[in-house]
């Protein structure tokens, strides 16, 4: 569903992403791991068409992002890091705008979409509240609602549980799990328990390169009995 081949991105002299390749199929929840600055967000930004790769390609449903960015964007639900949203709008106004851009032009279907997204992400009590007055957890949910609204076949989530309290984290994980049945999901995180809890595959990226691409079980088997953080540290210590 999502296929990434030899992606490269340079920022000045620094090579942020260095030949990253992987495939995500429907039903997969891919945990994208790595230290800060390893190239996780940059890779996600290239898949979603926000920045252009210097080399390599990313395809979604066999459509190349570089050739048909709009077609790819309509098939992806993307939650950017720290869930940006137009703060001066109410939750409902914001989702209405997203629905309209996503092509729901009749007000009846738009309302239906927005209601469903609000219900799913438990935003009904704050629907008429201005986004900038919401707590971090609610803001994150607004980002989620925006990403799920059009039932995309692919979900790209950049640190979806960052800054949430344990209850909210749990809730977001449940939501991701229920969403993943027939979708390809990529989520980035540096919380290792999260990967254990929901991911079906792990990709560990360090200094822009894929170091590990395997199941969580195989990852744990690298150092039986050890905590995941210690395996993570061993594999990425070159970054420090």
């Amino acid at each position: 569903m999502i296929e990434v081949k030899e992606l490269v991105k340079n920022y000045g002299d620094k090579r942020a992403v260095d030949g990253v390749s992987f495939t995500v199929r429907p039903g997969d929840i891919l945990g994208f791991l790595g230290p800060n600055g390893a190239g996780k967000s940059t890779t996600m930004k290239m898949i979603t068409g926000y920045i252009r790769p210097d080399a390599g390609s990313a395809t979604v449903a066999d459509i190349d992002v570089a050739k048909a960015p709009v077609a790819v964007k309509s098939r992806i639900g993307y939650l950017p890091e720290s869930a940006p949203a137009y703060g001066e709008m109410t939750v409902q106004e914001f989702l209405n705008f997203i629905a309209e851009v996503r092509g729901y032009r009749s007000s009846a279907t738009r309302r239906e979409r927005v209601e469903l997204a609000l219900t799913r992400t438990h935003l009904l009590p704050v629907r008429r509240q201005v986004i900038e007055t919401l707590s971090k957890g609610y803001k994150q949910r607004v980002g989620f609602a925006q990403a799920l609204l059009h039932e995309p076949p692919c979900l790209v989530l950049d640190e979806p549980t960052d800054g949430l309290d344990p209850n909210q984290k749990n809730e977001v994980r449940t939501l991701i799990k229920t969403m993943s049945t027939d979708r390809a999901v990529i989520l980035s995180t540096h919380i290792l328990e999260e990967v254990e809890a929901i991911c079906t595959r792990i990709i560990l990226i360090s200094r822009g390169k894929v170091v590990v691409d395997e199941t969580p079980d195989a990852f744990r088997a690298r150092k039986p009995g050890a905590r995941l953080d210690s395996i993570f540290r061993d594999l990425t210590s070159a970054d420090a």
Binding site: K73, P80, Y86
Partner: peptide, 14 residues
């Protein structure tokens, strides 16, 4: 500044 530019340009519009 608000980062919404990333949201805007990952929506299906040119």
């Amino acid at each position: 500044r608000g980062g919404t530019i990333e949201l805007l340009f990952t929506l299906p519009l040119t």
